[in-house]
C-alpha cells in the first residue's frame, strides 16, 4: 500500500514549493569508510541543481542512492516523492539519466534509440511514434533519423542523449558531466535545452567537477570528503568566498580534502 503514498509529505512541510528531492542526514558507509557522511539538502521542482565534488568526494555514491541503485546506511531521502528504501522501482520510473560515457547505442539508428528507451520506460507504442517524430523535428534531425547514432557528431549525440533521457517525461533528470568536450556553441544549445526542460518543470540534477558547467546551475552544493560543505547560488558562493569564479570557490573548498582517488 505504501506505493500509493505519493507525493511525499516530507517536502511539503519544509516549503510551499514542491520538492523534487529531499535528503536528510543521508549516510552511506562501507565498513569504517563513510563515503557519504550525513548530508542533507532539498531540490525544488524545476530547479537546476549542481552537485559538485572532487573525485572520491562521494558524489557518485550519493547519486546512486538517489537514482534508486543503492540503499543508504542511514538517514532518509525522497526522490520524486518516493522513498529510497522502499520505492526504488518507482523512483527509477520517474527519473531520467544521462552520462557523458553511457548514453546511446552507436549501432542503432536515431529512431531506434528513441524507440528503445521509450519502450523500456513503458511509453506506449503509438505515443512513442508521435513523440519521436516531434523530437526528431525539434532537434532538426529529420535527415539523420535513419542514420546510425555512431555517425553523428559528438554535439548532436549529446543533445539527442539528453532528449532521450527526458523522453518519458520524468520528474527529475540526472546528468553526469553532460557537456564535456563539445564546442562552445553546441554547449550553449545544450544548455538551452536544459533550461527549457527546467522551465517545463523537470528538475535537473547535474553532477560535474567542471566549474564552468556548474555556473549555469540555479544552486550548487559542493561535496568534500563525504560531506556537503557549501550550498547556495553561484553568485552567493562567489560572494561568500570572495572569489571571481566558481573555480576559485571550489579550489578553496576542495584544497582541504583528505581523500584522494576515485
Amino acid at each position: 500500500m505504501e506505493d500509493n503514498q505519493s507525493p511525499s509529505t516530507v517536502g511539503r512541510q519544509s516549503s510551499t514549493k514542491e520538492k523534487a528531492i529531499v535528503c536528510k542526514n543521508l549516510t552511506k558507509q562501507f565498513g569504517d569508510f563513510k563515503a557519504v557522511n550525513n548530508i542533507s539538502f532539498d531540490v525544488d521542482q524545476g530547479e537546476i541543481f549542481g552537485f559538485l565534488g572532487a573525485n572520491g568526494a562521494g558524489k557518485t555514491t550519493a547519486m546512486r542512492i538517489l537514482c534508486g541503485l543503492s540503499y543508504p546506511t542511514s538517514g532518509e531521502a525522497m526522490v520524486a516523492g518516493f522513498d529510497v528504501y522502499r520505492q526504488q522501482e518507482k523512483i527509477k520510473k520517474n527519473i531520467g539519466y544521462m552520462s557523458q560515457k553511457f548514453s546511446l547505442y552507436d549501432n542503432l539508428t536515431v529512431l531506434e534509440n528513441i524507440e528503445f528507451y521509450g519502450g523500456i520506460y513503458g511509453v506506449q507504442g503509438a505515443e512513442i511514434k508521435t513523440r519521436s517524430n516531434d523530437l526528431v523535428s525539434t532537434l532538426g534531425l529529420e535527415k539523420e533519423a535513419k542514420k546510425l547514432v555512431g555517425e553523428l557528431p559528438l554535439g548532436w549525440k549529446q543533445k539527442l542523449a539528453f532528449s532521450v533521457a527526458i523522453f518519458h517525461r520524468p520528474k527529475i533528470v540526472f546528468l553526469d558531466e553532460p557537456t564535456g568536450g563539445v564546442d562552445p556553441v553546441t554547449r550553449r544549445q545544450f544548455w538551452d535545452m536544459i533550461y527549457e526542460a527546467a522551465a517545463n518543470g523537470i528538475t535537473v540534477f547535474v553532477t560535474t567537477h567542471y566549474m564552468d558547467e556548474a555556473e549555469y546551475c540555479n544552486r550548487i552544493s559542493v561535496m568534500v570528503d563525504g560531506c556537503v560543505n557549501a550550498m547556495d547560488t553561484p553568485a552567493n558562493l562567489k560572494k561568500q568566498f570572495n572569489a571571481h569564479s566558481m573555480d576559485e570557490v571550489f579550489y578553496e573548498l576542495a584544497r582541504s580534502a583528505k581523500r584522494t582517488g576515485d
Partner: peptide
Amino acid sequence: TTGVDVVSRK
C-alpha cells in the same frame, strides 16, 4: 587536464 578536478588542474 581532461577528467581531472579543479585542484589538480591548478
